[in-house]
């Protein structure tokens, strides 16, 4: 049975893979069609890079605040952080972008699409990161707290020297995954006309009807952003590795 399943899986995957390669390679490429648009694609890629870096930094800050709130000894910050995280994780990003831009940003009179996009993405990703961080902190054994208390470390010192260093290593892989999601999710900002990578590729396609020529560079462009993150995560995991 096990043999049969692995055979089946191998066959299905190989056939699918070959089919895709056949379609992609078999296409009659006309790269000259998108020749005039390389500049647009590149500017879109730069915009995506800019949005992603800004949102990545801001989302970490937001996640720290939310994690501190959720781990607080007081009920009010705990409750508010919980509500925020549940609300953000329970609604579609697309809806958050539309409401954030057309209702909230409009209400306060902020019309920078880039700026609003960064804030909305950060708020979204921050909620997911906060759950990852909280899980990391809570996964450190309570005996570490006991030991730190016995030594006479204060609560702040315990977090700084004992809990956080152990939690960081545990949250690295999941955080890297969330950072990659953030980059990919930035493609939804086209709905508020941020001229990011996906939007530029779509425009190239609608101007030239050259779908393959527009979207294949787009896919490679996204990989160019997400792949270094997963490499960096692996490097850091190795570097901070210790035996249990």
């Amino acid at each position: 049975m096990k043999k049969f399943v692995s055979l089946f899986v191998s066959v299905v995957l190989s056939v699918t893979f070959c089919f895709i390669v056949w379609v992609v390679l078999g296409h009659d490429y006309q790269w000259e069609l998108i020749q005039p648009y390389w500049g647009n694609l590149f500017s879109g890629w730069l915009t995506t890079l800019g949005v992603s870096v800004a949102a990545l930094l801001l989302s970490v800050v937001i996640a720290f605040v939310l994690t501190a709130g959720q781990l607080s000894d007081y009920r009010v910050p705990r409750f508010l952080s919980r509500i925020y995280v549940e609300f953000i994780r329970g609604t579609p990003l697309l809806a958050q972008i539309l409401i954030g831009y057309y209702m909230i940003a409009d209400f306060i009179g902020w019309d920078s699409r880039f700026g609003v996009g960064v804030v909305i993405l950060s708020g979204f990703s921050g909620a997911y990161l906060a759950e990852i961080f909280r899980g990391g902190v809570e996964s450190v054994s309570s005996s570490q707290w006991l030991s730190a208390r016995a030594i006479g470390l204060t609560e702040g010192q315990t977090y700084r020297h004992i809990i956080v260093p152990q939690a960081v290593r545990r949250v690295l892989p999941a955080s890297a995954g969330q950072f990659a999601n953030l980059i990919k999710d930035s493609s939804l900002l086209f709905v508020i006309s941020v001229h990011e990578f996906t939007m530029q590729a779509r425009e190239v396609n609608s101007n030239t009807y050259a779908a393959f020529e527009a979207y294949i560079p787009m896919i490679l462009g996204y990989l160019l952003l997400t792949f270094p993150i997963s490499m960096l995560s692996r490097f850091l995991e190795k570097r901070y590795h210790y035996e249990h």
Binding site: Q144, S147, A150, G152, I162, Q166, R169, Y240, Y242, E243
Partner: peptide
Amino acid sequence: RMGNGFLFQSFNLFPH
């Protein structure tokens, strides 16, 4: 607690 010392059955060293 600072003035005293405490040892646990399961050592509780800091693994990192």
